[in-house]
């Protein structure tokens, strides 16, 4: 950590923000396919609607978990270099 120049670490923070943005875009696509219907499509039956919401919530929870673990890894292993 001490050997890294501040500029490198600033760049690493920008990379972290970019990865989280990309993950957000990926998850928003998954959620929009699973939970929502593009305009023009007709809603299915109640069971399918409920199933879509549950799968969507699961995808959202996975994303939040991945995001949390990634930031923790970034802080301790890349920014602070704590073993």
């Amino acid at each position: 950590m001490q050997g890294d120049k501040p500029g490198v670490k600033i760049f690493m923070l920008i990379i972290l923000l970019t990865i989280i943005w990309a993950l957000f875009l990926g998850v928003s696509v998954i959620l929009s396919v699973l939970i929502t219907l593009p305009e023009g499509q007709v809603a299915g039956d109640m069971f399918m609607s409920a199933a879509r919401v549950f799968v969507g919530l699961f995808a959202f929870a996975v994303w939040v978990f991945v995001w949390e673990r990634l930031t923790e890894f970034w802080l301790y292993r890349i920014m602070l270099r704590v073993e």
């Binding site: 928003s28 696509v29 929009s32 939970i35 929502t36 219907l37 593009p38 919401v53």
Partner: peptide, 16 residues
């Protein structure tokens, strides 16, 4: 209740 999402465009979320 029809937010626009990346890659998908306008969606319908009347209940959610």
């Amino acid at each position: 209740p029809t937010p626009e999402l990346p890659f998908i465009g306008q969606t319908r979320m009347f209940l959610v």
